[in-house]
């Protein structure tokens, strides 16, 4: 006996299917997955936007005003709104993922995943409230 076993006369004639380039349109879950992957581009965009703002602030009032004018131009607003939606998708899917990756135990009991997720949402709300308080408090 040598080489591969030939189970049948037609052994080499397996039919191999190709995945289409558009496989991710076939199922809702696949589409959501691709959108989530895409969302990282927008996360990066927010980082760049933040850095640009920081630089403008560092360069004094005139530059900062120019940055604000640029940020208010219609296309930047549109990009930012789209980016916000993607970042929200990113955050929510991330929060839902965390309890899957982490098994938290309290006094030997496994904390249910929903509670792990809920605690992150609570953290999110608290942080957001703090930021809003900073903004409104300062203004």
């Amino acid at each position: 006996m040598s080489g591969h076993p030939a189970y049948t006369e037609f052994h080499p004639r397996w039919y191999r299917r190709q995945m289409s380039t558009w496989w991710w349109l076939g199922k809702r879950a696949y589409l959501v997955f691709i959108l989530r992957e895409l969302s990282s581009v927008f996360v990066a965009w927010f980082v760049v936007f933040g850095l640009l703002m920081l630089r403008a602030v560092g360069q004094g009032d005139g530059q900062y005003q120019r940055f604000l004018d640029w940020a208010a131009s219609p296309w930047v607003v549109v990009v930012n709104v789209v980016a916000l939606l993607f970042v929200l998708l990113h955050a929510i899917t991330w929060f839902n993922l965390a309890p899957k990756a982490m098994v938290v135990r309290l006094r030997g009991q496994r904390v249910p995943g929903s509670l792990v997720a809920a605690s992150q949402y609570a953290g999110w709300v608290v942080l957001s409230a703090f930021v809003i308080w900073l903004l409104v408090g300062a203004g």
């Binding site: 696949y30 899957k100 982490m102």
Partner: peptide
């Protein structure tokens, strides 16, 4: 694994392979 998550959705035995892999990554 890029965490598509469909393995867990279709598993008939409640194994949750997606969860297993994410835990393993950690």
């Amino acid at each position: 694994c890029t965490f598509v998550g469909e393995c867990t959705a279709v598993c008939p035995k409640g194994v949750d392979p997606a969860g297993a892999i994410q835990r393993y990554k950690l």
